[in-house]
C-alpha cells in the first residue's frame, strides 16, 4: 500500500459557519407515478458536512443530484449561495463548476489519463494554463496518495484508486461544495477506507459536503448532521450522535436495527 493516503485520521468535522450555502424549499419530483421527493426542505451551511442516509429508493441520491441539477425538479426552489439554480445553459455550467460531484461509479473519463482527467476541466472550464493546471493536479493526486499513477488510464486503477482520482478531479475546480453520491457503494470492502480517509480529511478542512452513504461509521464520526430519508421525505435531521443513539422516528429505528445488528 505505497499509495495509501498519508494524512492522519482527523478527529471530525469543524464547526459550520451558520451561513446557508444550499437551501432547498418545498422540492418535489416524480418519476412517473412514483413521488421520489416530497416537499423537501433542507438547508446546508457553509463548512457543514451533511450525511444523507435511508433505505434504497428513499430519494437520497435523487436529492443529491438535484443540487447540481443533474436531476430537474418539478416544484419548489433550490438556491446555491443565494442564487437560484439556472436553466440548462452557460449559467448552469458556471454554477456546476463551483459544485464538485463524486459518483458511485467514479465516471473517470475512460479515454484520458489520470492527469488529464484532473486537468481537463481546469483548463477548459476555468481557462487555466496547462502548466499551472498540471502542477495543481499533481499536488491533488499527491494528496489523495496517487502521485505515481498520473500517467495511467482509469481502467488500470483499482476502484478505490479511481474514486480518489475522481475526488482529486472535483477538487481541482476549487468547489464551494462537494456532493458525494454513494462514493463507496461500488467498492470492494478493503478499498472503502482509503476513500473515506480522503473524505474525512476534506471534512476536517472545512469543505462543505453533502454525502449520500451507507457507511454509518463515517456518518457518525465525520458528519455535523445526519439527514434520514424514507419514501421521498426527510424524516429526521439531527447531529449524528443523537440520531444513532436515540432515533426519534419508528422508521429510523427500524432502519438502524436492520443495518446495525445483523
Amino acid at each position: 500500500m505505497t499509495d495509501a493516503p498519508t494524512a492522519p485520521t482527523p478527529p471530525g468535522p469543524g464547526p459550520a459557519t451558520g451561513r446557508p450555502l444550499v437551501v432547498l424549499q418545498g422540492v418535489n419530483k416524480h418519476y412517473g407515478s412514483l413521488h421520489v421527493l416530497r416537499d423537501i426542505d433542507l438547508t446546508v451551511d457553509e463548512r457543514e458536512v451533511v450525511v444523507l442516509i435511508g433505505p434504497s429508493g428513499s430519494g437520497k441520491s435523487t436529492l443529491c443530484r438535484t443540487i447540481n441539477r443533474l436531476e430537474t425538479i418539478e416544484s419548489g426552489s433550490i438556491t446555491l449561495d443565494g442564487q437560484p439554480l439556472p436553466e440548462e445553459g452557460k449559467a448552469l455550467a458556471r454554477l456546476r463548476a463551483e459544485v464538485g460531484m463524486v459518483f458511485q461509479s467514479f465516471n473517470l473519463f475512460a479515454h484520458k489519463t489520470v492527469l488529464d482527467n484532473v486537468t481537463l476541466a481546469p483548463i477548459k472550464v476555468r481557462k487555466r494554463g496547462k502548466a499551472e493546471a498540471e502542477k495543481r493536479a499533481r499536488e491533488l493526486l499527491d494528496r489523495v496518495g496517487l502521485a505515481d499513477q498520473a500517467n495511467k488510464f482509469p481502467a488500470q486503477l483499482s476502484g478505490g484508486q479511481q474514486q480518489r482520482v475522481a475526488i482529486a478531479r472535483s477538487l481541482a475546480m476549487d468547489p464551494k461544495l462537494m456532493l458525494f453520491d454513494e462514493p463507496t457503494s461500488a467498492l470492494d470492502p478493503e478499498m472503502i477506507n482509503e476513500v473515506l480517509e480522503v473524505m474525512r480529511s476534506l471534512a476536517a478542512e472545512g469543505m462543505t459536503m453533502i454525502v449520500v452513504t451507507h457507511e454509518m461509521g463515517f456518518a457518525r464520526s465525520a458528519a455535523n448532521r445526519v439527514v434520514f430519508m424514507a419514501d421521498g421525505q426527510i424524516v429526521e435531521s439531527r447531529p449524528p450522535a443523537e440520531f444513532f443513539d436515540s432515533p426519534q422516528s419508528a422508521r429510523a429505528r427500524d432502519f438502524l436495527s436492520k443495518i446495525l445488528h445483523h
Binding site: N68, L70, K90, A93, R94, L95, R96, A97, E98, V99, G100, M101, F103, S105, N107, L108, F109, A110, L120, A121, K124, V125, A166, R169, S170, M173
Partner: peptide, 12 residues
C-alpha cells in the same frame, strides 16, 4: 455517467 461527470465539472 461520462457526460454527467463532464457536466458536473462545469463543461458546456
Amino acid at each position: 455517467g461520462q457526460g454527467e461527470a463532464a457536466r458536473s465539472l462545469g463543461m458546456t
